[in-house]
């Protein structure tokens, strides 16, 4: 088990290093001169020179890369070019929206998707199964940002139950903040819940066909008992991987959904950074998001150990 964890940790670090290199290359090396890119074509030479110094462009790329990495390790993410404030402060403000949004969506996804999948598999070929499968088939096909627009139209424009967008901030009370994130997280979660339900169903059906389910039934366990005590936990193993991937999708999807609802989160920050060509902000936010995704996948692999004794090898 220790060696499994060590292996996973090593692969986590390698992924992070490679990811940072890729982001660095794409942002700082590929566009040619990042300062020129950020300021546009008709920039003043002295502004350009100032920015070049700020970015450290006089240094070789390798030095710049390590400066960036060591800075981040110390919590120094650089100064945003457009906001003139440390990126760490910008991120700290926005993460209070993006992280709850991703977590809320993930919770909704799991709470809706897993039971739907289990019910469909337990009642295979029934009307319930057909209804769940039909709904999920549709759910997978719906683009989340379109779903978000429809939710705004119905619940904000027509029914006036929710604000059409914006975020009141957590200091106005938990409930208001939660209400502000509810529609966006539903828009994010439902299509993902549809995917999860299908994966859960199919994994559970595979498991229900296993020999050990027959052994359990031969012991005298009724179908439902065999399902809950033997099939579900086994079926969750492949599902865990999907949940990990979905978190990554929810984070990235959140970036787009934040735009639909005008939420002041990391996604808005990214797009503002992109339109204003603020590469310092963009690379940091993207690196943070990638870190979150890689870290969550690491957690999923730890969860495997808890679920699956075959990974808990003794020395």
């Amino acid at each position: 088990m220790a060696s499994y964890l060590a292996g996973r940790l090593a692969s986590l670090l390698i992924s992070l290093v490679v990811a940072s290199i890729v982001i660095f290359l794409v942002i700082e090396v590929v566009p040619g001169d990042p300062a020129q890119f950020m300021l546009g074509l008709n920039a003043q030479p002295d502004t350009l020179a100032a920015l070049r110094t700020q970015l450290g462009l006089d240094e070789p790329a390798l030095i710049r890369y390590f400066t960036w990495i060591f800075g981040m390790l110390h919590g120094d993410f650089g100064i945003s070019y457009t906001y003139r404030t440390p990126v760490s402060e910008l991120v700290a403000q926005r993460i209070g929206v993006s992280a709850p949004l991703a977590l809320l969506s993930l919770a909704l996804t799991v709470i809706i998707g897993l039971p739907a999948g289990i019910i469909a598999a337990a009642r295979r070929n029934s009307a319930t199964d057909a209804a769940v499968m039909g709904a999920t088939q549709l759910g997978i096909a719906v683009p989340n940002f379109w779903f978000a627009i429809m939710l705004v139209w119905i619940f904000a424009v027509i029914l006036h139950w929710f604000p059409a967008g914006g975020f009141p901030g957590w200091n106005k009370g938990i409930w208001l903040g939660f209400k502000g994130l509810l529609l966006p997280s539903i828009a994010l979660a439902l299509p993902q819940a549809a995917i999860l339900a299908r994966v859960m169903r199919s994994s559970l059906l595979d498991t229900l066909g296993e020999d050990y389910i027959r052994t359990a039934r031969a012991k005298g366990l009724p179908r439902a008992q065999a399902l809950w005590k033997h099939a579900v936990r086994n079926a969750l193993i492949p599902v865990l991987t999907i949940v990990g991937l979905q978190f990554s999708f929810l984070l990235a999807g959140g970036i787009i959904i934040e735009n639909v609802f005008y939420l002041p989160g990391l996604g808005r920050l990214t797009f503002q950074g992109i339109t204003q060509r603020d590469l310092i902000t963009v690379k940091t936010v993207i690196m943070l998001l990638v870190f979150a995704v890689i870290f969550v996948n690491f957690l999923v692999e730890i969860a495997y150990v808890l679920v699956d004794p075959r990974l808990r090898r003794r020395a």
């Binding site: 794409v26 970036i255 787009i256």
Partner: peptide, 20 residues
Amino acid sequence: NDLIFAFPALLLAILITSVF
């Protein structure tokens, strides 16, 4: 492959299209 999977797909797509 693992590495590409580790990236949130849409995020990198946004990154690529925004820079290029």
